[in-house]
Design a protein around this nucleic acid. Structure first.
Lengths: 163, 163
DNA sequence: TATTGTTATACTCTATAACTATA
DNA sequence: TATAGTTATAGAGTATAACAATA
């Protein structure tokens, strides 16, 4: 292995091995903690959604269409922070699975209204029930009021304008 | 454009355009909110760290080495959830910028102890000061005690074991 | 045999430019 | 001209397999 052949004298003297890693500074940062929490929650979410073959984004897309039938690609992108070119493939895959369908928009000839098929509606209902169960799992470590507070504060972080 | 040539009668009748997108269900999920908050905080962090040419991961790596001189790649990976092959390139880049140096580990011939150069130490001190300022910015929307609560609850989410 | 650091590589996610058809 | 959807493509981030050196 390529190595430094001349360690500095200062280091020979000090060179401590780190027993336990001190993360105290990073843990003062909201971004660090939020990212870690998001990764943990999403990991758990991935497991729970495996039976439905849905990744978190797929779930979000289907759930939004379910609660907003006729929503356009553009609206989905704005809501979820996805770029239009990256949404196309997801919609194609979900349409091929016959979970959703693109229909002409009633008033805008350029746009397509997105709708769930009956199969898609059933899948989303089941998946949302599972998702709610996963939240309850987190709630078991956090208490219902703590969970409510956590979500309220997170919204304040990413929705600076309106409370 | 390729379009559905025969819209179903049912849709012609109903087909509503969505005025405002209803995200109420997704907003009940911790993962969704945590991801959004993390993305918002990290976006702001990216801006603030631009003068130092540090991405969030680079900052985390340098900060951890600063507070844990002699830490190994393996320990960095475990702490930050990075895979060893993906850390190598980052360390090479930071070493080429003369911000850190790899030194032989005092007791394990396989491992390398990571240390900051004087220039790296100065950069990290400045960057950490800037990062603390960005936190204060979030604190302006959130109140110090809310900020403390938020971080405490986030830790509970991603550190299920110890409180 | 197991582990550290590394290379090579593949896969996913995200981002940019440009085209078409409609407004 | 501006916008919705799409295509192609480039880049960043993340993943696995395999190797040499050391424990």
């Amino acid at each position: 292995m390529a190595r430094t052949s001349t360690p500095s004298p200062r280091t020979v003297e000090a060179a401590p091995a780190v027993a336990e890693v001190d993360t105290s500074f990073l843990e003062t940062l909201v971004g660090y903690n939020a990212r870690r929490a998001a990764l943990a929650a999403i990991d758990r979410f991935l497991e729970g959604m495996a039976p439905y073959q849905l990744k978190p984004v797929d779930f979000s897309v289907l759930s939004l269409i379910h609660h907003n039938p006729g929503i356009t690609s553009r609206q989905l992108c704005a809501t979820l922070g996805i770029l239009p070119p990256n949404l196309v493939g997801m919609l194609n895959a979900l349409e091929k699975r016959e979970l959703l369908s693109r229909m002409p928009h009633p008033r805008d000839g350029r746009a397509m209204g997105l709708h769930l098929t009956p199969g898609g509606q059933k899948l989303v209902r089941d998946a949302e029930r599972t998702a709610a169960g996963l939240e309850a799992e987190i709630g078991a470590r956090l208490s219902p009021s703590e969970l409510q507070t956590l979500i309220r504060l997170l919204k304040k972080v990413y929705k600076p304008g309106r409370p």
